[in-house]
Design a binder for these strands. Structure first.
Lengths: 166, 166
DNA sequence: AAGAATGGGTTCCGAAATAGAACTTGTCAA
DNA sequence: TTGACAAGTTCTATTTCGGAACCCATTCTT
């Protein structure tokens, strides 16, 4: 499977990855959420090759995740801003980040904290069920075909045993 | 920046990406959460090159996300199972998936639905503040250095005017 | 006993993506 | 006239990937 085919897979994760499924793209988005907006800033902060950065910004813009906004004319200069579609990726970024805080931080703890303006606390993201509000656990979920499922969609239904504890 | 350097970045997102930050790895994990466990099954369902699959399974195992478990002796056969650390990635996968359901699904709707055994409803993940329980929004968050922050850690606070050093 | 099948890989090659550096373009200021 | 700045584009060398073939220990089929 190639990158170009990914967005046609009958899987929302695959389709998401066709937009943000590479290392640099996610790091560019991290910077966007830190309010970084300009080409040179991305380049300096990330240490990314310029043409790779140009490519990722172009793709994210085409995907509607970022929008180019002129911040001056003559010479025309443009910066990249998150759209609503881009801002909607925040929970995903935060979930990855929280996992890193928990499993990849050194003994000192995480390098960056987030404070919720609304309640004033240092927070992390909690992933809860949209219906009952309970924290979500992979073992409490089953899957079934949705309206966009192809005709012969196979969903493996195997006996599920608990995972091995590390 | 190379892959090998990513896990030493002072950023939990970068460190997470050093483990799961590539397309195939996330798709392998998708299959794991669908209870796929064996080499041949991963290969057939994903259409991934075998040596790439072998490499990703090895790296995920070394990272403690998967564990190799023998399911028969003579001949010895092993399968890959999510550890607790791996299961903890579920909210992140689900957040990416929900974004895809919302922004990348065709007019028919998403191909796969998830049902919460606990409450019986078809659900999606909601990302809420761990302290006040309100839904999280990127614009309601500020960042500040955490205990693991390096000495001269620069955090851009305002919309960028001039270059912000790293 | 010979040959095929099974599961889980490894090896090889050409194609594609990446890193790093140099070059381009439009504009203004010294 | 030269230089600086921002935002790219182009070049080459290296790395990774896709696809196919091959390997190997064991068990099944005939």
């Amino acid at each position: 499977m190639r990158w170009e085919e990914l967005d046609r897979e009958p899987c929302s994760l695959a389709r998401t990855l066709s937009v943000v499924g590479d290392r640099w793209t996610l790091l560019v988005l991290r910077e966007c959420f830190l309010r970084i907006r300009r080409f040179e800033e991305f380049e300096q902060r990330l240490g990314i090759a310029r043409h790779v950065l140009a490519d990722r910004l172009k793709k994210l813009t085409e995907a509607g995740v970022l929008a180019k906004v002129a911040y001056q004319e003559r010479p025309r200069r443009e910066e990249y801003r998150l759209t609503e579609k881009g801002l909607a990726l925040y929970p995903a970024l935060l979930a990855l980040l929280d996992w890193g805080d928990k499993y990849m931080a050194g003994p000192e703890g995480p390098p960056l904290l987030r404070r919720h303006k609304t309640c004033g606390h240092v927070v992390h993201a909690a992933s809860v069920c949209s219906e009952c509000g309970e924290p979500l656990d992979a073992r409490a979920m089953t899957v079934e075909p949705g309206p966009g499922a192809p005709a012969n969609f196979s969903i493996p239904q195997r006996p599920s045993k608990s995972a091995v504890d590390k």
